[in-house]
Each structure stands twice: as structure tokens, then as C-alpha cells.
Design a protein around this nucleic acid. Structure first.
Lengths: 307, 307
DNA sequence: TAAAAATACTCCATAGGTATTTTAT
DNA sequence: ATAAAATACCTATGGAGTATTTTTA
């Protein structure tokens, strides 16, 4: 029942300096971001390297390089610091639950459509919580969650999230977007996937998880991808109205995009796959309770889609 | 790409003191285990409580109690300290790979049979590695791995291990042990599970994962458990030879136990389930590489059972 | 009235500062 | 020549010590 409590060879401050140097790739710049003088920081780095018995940085040529040991130990230093920061945050939650900043990432295919809907009710429900939103693609969000740079993220569960904790907000089925004159543009009834066979389908750029989800749907229907790729859903819709091809949209985007001239929208059968929008966060995040409450409010603000 | 490097409100030393007090439930004893004076430790605890803004300990009545915040934050402190200790260990692996102490837990139904087999080859393959063996039941081993009190454990994968990393060593099928005069004791051919129906089966005490595995096997065969429970496999075999009932043994135990008078052993069909013996460790343990090498050596030392 | 934690103070080790030199492009 | 890291040296904060008082079972 007794844990090893013998003295540790490094301090948290020293680990911060190590990470700072690794990120800045320069002792002087690292010193600046840590608000200490360059010699002070150099001394601490030297102290760390001596007490660990390993050289972490190669400071010969222009710039600072990480040694192999440095690579590994900087990564571990990050983990220690994230845990320590979590502890401090958890303490703050005891002082004052539901107060403070929450940094939440959102993927680009969700942000512009969902945030306007959920921000007012969130503000109302958690008036003392300051939400800081960031728009990034899934991979970047997951990486930043791991580094403790974000507290939560709004993502699609179909993407690869590693081992994050999450709460589902709603299912978001796909909708087919066509130019008005298109042979399939008439009617409001569900379109079968097979009807799209032979169409030129426009998709998003690489890195957007919505691209991958749409692509895997298209693969089943043997639909061909056009050689044009868009950087955002509005651009994609723009191209469709210009008659370049057809595309798939998340139904979440329909209210905002459906107003366009020369655009027809048709649903897919309710059995067709969609994406699942969820709020995700690091396991054991100090904000776990707050985030669950947040998710509940968002779910209420956006009545669940009838699939 | 920049992590939060602003000053942290606590030091690693302070977190060690917090954990020490939580474990000792006394400031003076905690001070003793940390090799500092009681006032120094008290001062640091006060400093932590002030900078976190939360009271961690209730020191009114006899003894020290944890506040709710204390419960949570001590747990987080443990995590921070385990990560920090891992970092230090990882650094040592760079200085001197495969040197040092490895604390390995083993469950009681594996230890006496496997260790004599694998220890000599391990000693030969890793002469500069000191292996420290501990015998505990699975739950305790998993808990101690999580607290960083153990570096690895020899366990059966069928038990609940949480999210440990592991390498399988070998499959260990069940064998039926009967007294010599028993109606099923004749022959060497596989016994079907159903043949045991109606038998009084002796099992281990609660907490032994082997008990659970044998029990789930018996459940399918509608075999009845005797009201006697043994604390070890040798005791169990002893009871069988005394004619109290029959039992299931791991084949691993057969070489050591088969010599007894009045004991008959019969295998089960190769399709019958068994247990899977593996070496397991905490994710991202600094010993990951060494442990994989260890597992390989143990696997070689004990040629895989033909199922 | 003991046993344990808190307080009062003293001290020094070390993190941090400034000024300067060394190093490498 | 110049920018960056290392060195030299000084300062002062805060972690640790001893002695003592306060607390409560």
C-alpha cells in the first residue's frame, strides 16, 4: 500500500523548461516564453541533464536539436505536466464548480452550423463558464486534446479518436445536394444510394473526416469522385449550384445552405449511414462533470434528429 | 503547437507529501517516511492547501481524514508522481538499458510452477537485471501496477486487467484431478465436461482468478461446487487425494502435483477453454522494451503448450 | 496529560538575476 | 560579425531545520 516517495530527480518547473526548449528549438526563446532569463533556463536544463544522466538537446549547429533520449523524455515531460495541470484544474473545480475557461475545438463541418444554435443556450445555462472555441480538423483536435491544449472537442465519432471519453449529441444523416436541373432533382422522397451510380461526386479536401465518411458511402454505391476538391462545405455547395456535380451534405448544414438558388436537396433512406456528432474529452479530464452537463444542454438545445 | 507552460501551483515534492499524509493518515508519520521534520511537512501541506484554495485533510479528531477534494486530488497526485517516476526510469534506461530492478507480481496459481522454470533462463539472458518477485492475487497486482508499485505482473488474461499492455506467454488448459478410485479415474483419454455432471467439485477461495475460471467452466457442465474452499492449489490436490471430491487444475501445475499418491489426472478435450498466461504492464511503462524481451525469453524457456 | 499538529524563528541551498565570455556560423 | 549558449558571480526566496506552543481526545 505504499508508493515510492523517494525524491525525484527533476522538478515540474524544470520539465516545463525542457518542453519549452523542445517547442521553441532555442534556449533564449524558451526562456522568454517561460519569463525567465536565458542563463537561468540554461542552468536548469543543465541541471536536468546532469541529474538524469542523459543529454536531451544537441546545441551544436544552428538551432537546438533533440537527442533520441530527448524525444522520449520530452514526450514524458508533457504527460507529467498535463497531469499536473489537470490536478490544478480539478482543485479549481472544487473551489468554484462551473466557473472558468473551457477551450473547445470544433471540426469545420460542424462549427458554422452548430455553434450559432448551441451558444446562446450554453451561455444561459453556464453564465460563469467562458467557452473558447477553436476550429481545426479532427486529427489536430485529438492531438491538442492529448497535449492539454484543449479541454474538449465537437467531432464525428466515425473518425479515429483514440481513447477519448465522449457523449453523443445527435445523429447527423447525409443528404444529397444536386443542381436544380438535375435528373434526380425532382421530388422530395428519399433517394437510394444506387440512384447516384455514375454521378460525378464533389468532395472535401483530404483531412476532413466528412470527406472520408462521404467517400466510404460513395464506395458502396460505385460513385465516381470528381477531380475537384473543395476546402469547405459552402464552397462545395457553390460548386453544385454551378452545375459541376453533385455532393453529400450533413443534414446539420441544410438549414444554412438550403436557401441557395439552383440547389435541390434530397434525403437518403433512413437506413443509410450518417455521422454521429459528439462532445469528446480526455479521460479523467478535470472538466468531466462540467462537460457532461454541457453535452446535456447541447442535446436539449438541438432536438435529436429523427433518423 | 504550444502547451500551457505557465507556473504550476504545486511542486512534485509537495505532491509526495500529500500522498504520504494520505497513506500514513498522520503528519508526523508521513514526515518520517519522507525523511523531513514534521513542521516542514506541515508547512508544505499548508502551502499546497493555500495555493490550491482547497482543504485536503481534516485534522480535527484522532487521526487525519481526507476531504472529498482530498480524495480526488490525492488520486491525481498519485498519477502525476507515477508519470514523473516513469520519466526518471525512462532516463535510466537510456543511461544503461536492461540494468536495474524490475518488480514483478505473480498470481499464486502461477508462481510456484512457472518461476522455477523461467528464473534460470531469465538470469542467464539478463544478468544485470535484478528481478524482484511478489505473490498477490490479480486485483491487488493490477492495483499495484497502477500505483507504480510494480513494473509488471504474470497473470491470466481471462481475469479483468483494466487497460494494461501485455504479451501472451502460453495457453494453459484445464486438467481434471480425481482420486484414484473414482469412476472417471481410469484411462488417459480426454474427459468430456458433461461427464463431470453431478460431481462435487472443490475450488479455490474467492479472489483467486483461477476459481472464477474453473467456476465458469463448471457452470456450463452443471457441476455442483462443494462447500469446502481451499487457499491454494496444493491444498486442493490434497483434498482430492483424500477423496473429498474432484477438481480442476491448470496444466501448468501438473508436473509439480502429479507425483502424489492416490491422484489421477485426465485432460479435457482440446476444444475446452483454458486460461492464457501473460506478462502484463502499465501502458507506456519505461520498461516496455525490457519486458517484451523478458516475455520472449520466458516463452522460449517454456515451449508453448500444444492445446 | 500525552500525542499530534501548528506556530515562531533561523538558516542555507538554490532558482533566478545581471554582466560577460565563448562558440559557431 | 553576430547571434546564441555558456560561464561567473551575486541575490533572495522558500524549503528545511530546532524549539515551542496549541489543540483535543
Amino acid at each position: 500500500m505504499d508508493m515510492d516517495l523517494s525524491p525525484l530527480p527533476v522538478t515540474l518547473r524544470q520539465l516545463q523548461y525542457v518542453v519549452a526548449v523542445a517547442e521553441a528549438r532555442s534556449f533564449s526563446r524558451a526562456a522568454a516564453t517561460c519569463h525567465v532569463s536565458q542563463p537561468s533556463l540554461s542552468a536548469q536544463i543543465a541541471e536536468v541533464e546532469s541529474s538524469l544522466g542523459v543529454r536531451l538537446f544537441e546545441r551544436d549547429r544552428a538551432g537546438v536539436l533533440l537527442t533520441p533520449a530527448g524525444e522520449v523524455l520530452v514526450e514524458r515531460a508533457r504527460r507529467v505536466l498535463v497531469e499536473a495541470r489537470d490536478l490544478a484544474q480539478a482543485a479549481m473545480r472544487f473551489v468554484d464548480p462551473l466557473v472558468g475557461n473551457l477551450r473547445i475545438g470544433v471540426i469545420p463541418t460542424i462549427a458554422p452550423y452548430l455553434l450559432p444554435e448551441v451558444m446562446p443556450p450554453l451561455r444561459e445555462a453556464f453564465p460563469r463558464l467562458t467557452l473558447l472555441w477553436t476550429e481545426e480538423k479532427t486529427d489536430e483536435l485529438v492531438a491538442r486534446l492529448g497535449r492539454g491544449e484543449l479541454d474538449a472537442a465537437l467531432v464525428a465519432l466515425e473518425a479515429d479518436l483514440g481513447d477519448l471519453e465522449h457523449q453523443v449529441l445527435f445523429r447527423d444523416p447525409f443528404v444529397v445536394a444536386l443542381p436544380k436541373g438535375h435528373r434526380l432533382a425532382k421530388g422530395k422522397s428519399p433517394l437510394r444510394l444506387e440512384d447516384l451510380a455514375g454521378e460525378q461526386v464533389l468532395l472535401l479536401d483530404d483531412g476532413h473526416c466528412f470527406r472520408d465518411q462521404a467517400l466510404s458511402l460513395c464506395a458502396r454505391a460505385r460513385v465516381e469522385e470528381a477531380d475537384f476538391r473543395a476546402t469547405s462545405l459552402p464552397t462545395l455547395v457553390q460548386m453544385v449550384t454551378a452545375g459541376v456535380g453533385v455532393t453529400l451534405l450533413p443534414r446539420l448544414a441544410v438549414p444554412a445552405e438550403s436557401g441557395r438558388a439552383n440547389l435541390a436537396l434530397r434525403p437518403l433512406p433512413s437506413s443509410a449511414p450518417g455521422r454521429t456528432v459528439a462532445l469528446a474529452w480526455r479521460h479523467r479530464s478535470p472538466f468531466g462533470d462540467a462537460l457532461r452537463a454541457l453535452a446535456a444542454t447541447m442535446r436539449k438545445a438541438r432536438p435529436v434528429s429523427r433518423a
